[in-house]
Amino acid sequence: MGGKVIAKDSLGEFVSKLSERYRIFGPRKKGTEWIFDEVRSAEEMDLRYSTTILPPRKFFIPTSERIFSFKMDGGVEEPEERDGPSLIFGIHSCDLNALLLLDMVFLEGEFPSPSYARRRERTALVALTCIDPSENCFCESMGTGPSPAGGYDVLLTDLGREYLAESGSRRGEEMLALAKGRAVTAADLEGKAKAIECAKSKFKKKVDLKGIDELFLRNLDNPVWKRLGEKDLACGICVNSCPTCFCFDVRDQLDFPMVGGVRYKEWDACVLLEFSQVALGGNFRRDRAARIRQFIGHNLGWGGASQFREFKGRAKCVGCGRCIRYCPAGIDLTEVVKELRGI
């Protein structure tokens, strides 16, 4: 696929050209943090962001989503799809890889999700090589960064005064045709490689994946879980900020005169007590220890087990660091792995 080198002061023009075709969502500052939000120009974005509060999965699996509406006396109506093409600008490698993992759950199973498929289809992705990983990042360990190997339409890499823009799809080619820039040289590609090397030298956290599924299954009774359960607030922040957590609840909501209502999905979290509750109050993960073990185990342990069909042997975790950044109790899954290994 082709590429271009775009001067930083031409980026605004590129974005404005793109905005004629797409609704653009990019990283925007919110207080001390960042969120992916609708933007109208390059100036509204902060491409030096570290990570966003919610991951980009919110665009593909909305936090709350109507499955259908119904009338009590019969009749079902599926939500209408009105949204046009949209574009996520500046998605980091970890979050992009997270979408590729979610694809395995919602597109590649026996019952693909039509709404997810539609949103993936109509959403272009402009990825960004991460040149300044945060103190909580460990995508390199997970093989998901700092620069993505694919899955993007366009990949931008900051080369100092310019961006190297590489296309990864036909849609990406069309997008790049809108950009003003010069041809890519060998020096630019070398610049990208150097930027990646430099980024790699900045990682402070690591996870050793060797035999990790076995490590978790062998350590189901390790005292570390009990200790974590005492600290854990079961607040759900780790799950809701995770880019690959896909669990949801399904509920019915009646409108008041009770002639009809909606069946809807809402994000759910395995660390919450109600998540595993069955009839008559039975619960197979009543203890917080079992629930935090499920979250961490699913992300790093059995989530990566070769028998786990969802992710074809890959770990669910992409190393974005959000669950570490936002945990009020200071629980750090990379430290948990070290403890399990007795390090």
Binding site: D213, L217, F246, C247, F248, D249, C270, Q294, H298, Q307
Partner: peptide
């Protein structure tokens, strides 16, 4: 019921 909502997971 279709391996998406995640509630019924037991390990993998």
């Amino acid at each position: 019921g279709i391996a998406q909502c995640g509630h019924c997971q037991i390990g993998p």
